[in-house]
């Protein structure tokens, strides 16, 4: 029956500049494949850090290592100088919340209930208190609801509190996922491609929202592909290529770095090694075309 709803926001005590997240030498291997190799990353309080890299660079794997979904093969992750426990629900309780690249809401619950689920780690009522319904239960439930409504207000979904999560339009589902993550009162929020599939207006709104989250004293680590978005938003950007951290620095530095450009666009090589193969492919295509022409109607002979 201990009610612990008045837990102060985990971040509120943090002084600016204090290291919130400290990942050292994180390596993740799946069998013979090394998805993330020896990555160091720190996030300080009051900071928005971006994590970019081409597809398959290991960004989401790294995220999963941070949130306890994967246990890193090597290296350790510290949150406020505590080594993170290897279970994702304990990581959330410690103060790291996340959203997912492909939205993972509880589709058949209402918007409000989704946020209330996010409150799980900050409330303590168990089965007995639910069955007996003492005054403590009602108080805690009311407090949770008030807090959840406040968060919905914050992301602008208060009017839709009673809608089913799956009936929300795409952009609002993203917002709801952020509200749900905030409900666990994190000190660090991990956002996995928060603007994927959004139009420019929605992206701008998301940017405002993330700034507002930062202003609440919550550090943010964000994976994103939209370069303009990430360059506007982030204080620091780390680039991950093939599981390794290529460079870390402010937006301008990263943007100018030739290795980053090469990682995204490829670089012209001296002796053009692909030319031979390209010519071969072209020739094969031409040959294939010729055979089809020679035997018209062949495609109908099945």
């Amino acid at each position: 029956m201990t009610t612990d709803t008045t837990t102060k926001s985990a971040a509120s005590g943090a002084t600016p500049g204090e290291t919130v997240l400290d990942a050292r030498g994180v390596t993740m291997r799946f069998g013979g494949l090394t998805a993330v190799s020896d990555v160091d990353l720190t996030v300080n309080s009051g900071e928005i850090v971006g994590l970019i890299g081409p597809n398959g660079a290991g960004k989401t794997t790294f995220f999963n290592c941070l949130t306890g979904l994967y246990i890193p093969t090597e290296g350790e992750v510290r949150y406020k100088n505590q080594v993170l426990p290897p279970k994702s629900f304990k990581v959330t309780a410690a103060g790291i919340a996340r959203t997912f690249q492909n939205i993972r809401l509880f589709a058949n619950m209402t918007v409000l209930e989704n946020v209330l689920v996010g409150r799980h780690t900050r409330t303590r009522e168990g089965l007995w208190s639910a069955l007996l319904r003492g005054p403590g239960f009602h108080k805690a439930e009311a407090a949770s609801r008030a807090r959840a409504m406040e968060l919905l207000e914050f992301v602008g979904l208060a009017a839709k509190a009673d809608h089913l999560a799956r009936n929300l339009p795409y952009g609002e589902q993203r917002k709801l996922e952020i509200a749900r993550a905030l409900a666990s009162e994190p000190g660090l929020l991990l956002l996995d491609e928060p603007t994927a599939g959004m139009n420019p207006q929605e992206t701008r709104a998301a940017e405002e929202l993330i700034f507002a989250i930062r202003d609440r004293g919550i550090a943010v680590l964000v994976i994103e592909h939209d370069m303009r978005f990430i360059m506007n938003l982030c204080d620091r950007v780390a680039v991950l290529v093939q599981g390794k951290k290529l460079i870390e620095g402010d937006a301008a530095t990263v943007q100018r770095d030739e290795r980053v450009i090469a990682a995204y666009l490829g670089e012209p090589l001296a002796n053009d090694p692909g030319a031979e193969e390209a010519a071969e492919v072209e020739a094969a295509e031409a040959a294939a075309e010729a055979t089809t022409d020679a035997a018209p109607g062949k495609e109908n002979d099945r």
Binding site: T67, S88, R104, F106, N108, A130, A140, E141, S144
Partner: peptide, 19 residues
């Protein structure tokens, strides 16, 4: 709280763990 946790587990276990 516990009932919502049950439903959350039913809906999406990974997301529920992350919560």
């Amino acid at each position: 709280r516990i009932g919502r946790a049950w439903i959350a587990i039913r809906e999406d276990e990974t997301a529920a763990l992350a919560m």
